[in-house]
Design a protein around this nucleic acid. Structure first.
Lengths: 160, 160
DNA sequence: GGTGAAACTGTGGACTT
DNA sequence: AAGTCCACAGTTTCACC
């Protein structure tokens, strides 16, 4: 079989994993500094990172913001119950219109989708939930407001 | 009143916002390139980024990984019902032991906490849910397995 | 995967608005 | 207070081993 994009077979060797952990800690670290950690020269690290980008393992680099310090400290998980058999693409298109929606996915269970909403305050959050309830395909919603964030890690674990 | 760390008052001017959007798109972009977008010299951009770091708005820089390409394509939201009045700190300490837990928070509503779990496959996910149910403070759990990711954005919105 | 060289970038000081 | 210009150290990136 050509290629090997099979789920569960990502041939990430331990050095790649170590590089990804360093980039997870500080994505602006120089290749030389990463190389010092993983015992490789800067160009060798660069070649591995370029390969990981080419393979699609590395999707890009982002800044991590403190929600509180930016005035977006209010957060909720909203379960969306959709009409009949609303297609995922329809929900996706609707959710993408909201800058306040930072994540959304269709799920198993009672609800059809779970939406992660960020807002400036409770009033703002309430407004978003109302707008969601007014979407044509939305039958009802069920919100859990975040009280205390307990864990916040890079979105994908990298095995040591 | 001295200082202004009030929620909703983050005095982010439009240039800071533009810089953060660029860093969100590519956190390894050079200050010169960012400066070309926001019409500022490289040192001016660096000074603003340094200031945003000092103020705690910028928390750091991370790599964004494709969960599928790394073999972590299975995902669930697990609602945790905790015994009596379990303290958040107890839950936090427990959840931090799981590399599979990428996010967790206490919430309003029926459940006491919502945990975002990443796993290699369904078997792995099942194992994590079983381990969670076996935690001393956990009464029961209710899982929603992710079928299709619809939206995935930087964790905190930045206003244009 | 390492080395060395050239081009580019980060960074702090001096000066300008 | 915040920007630009400049110079030097550090980094990226390439060809070659």
């Amino acid at each position: 079989m050509l290629g090997s994009v099979l789920p569960g077979a990502p041939d990430l060797d331990p050095i790649d994993a170590a590089i990804l952990r360093e980039l997870g800690r500080d994505a602006r670290a120089s290749f030389a500094r990463i190389g010092a950690v993983v015992n490789l020269s800067a160009p060798a690290v660069k070649r591995r990172v370029d390969r990981l980008k080419r393979r699609g393992v590395v999707d890009g680099f982002t800044v991590r913001l403190d929600p509180g310090a930016t005035g977006w400290g209010t957060e909720a998980h909203v379960e969306v119950y959709a009409a009949g058999s609303t297609r995922p693409a329809v929900m996706k298109e609707a959710f993408e219109q909201y800058p306040e929606i930072v994540a959304a996915s269709t799920v198993t269970g009672d609800a059809d989708a779970v939406v992660h909403v960020r807002a400036r305050d409770m009033t703002h959050l309430e407004e978003i939930v109302e707008r969601l309830n007014a979407e044509p395909f939305v039958v009802r919603t069920r919100s859990s407001v975040v009280l205390t964030p307990l864990v916040r890690r890079p979105d994908v674990p990298v095995q040591p």
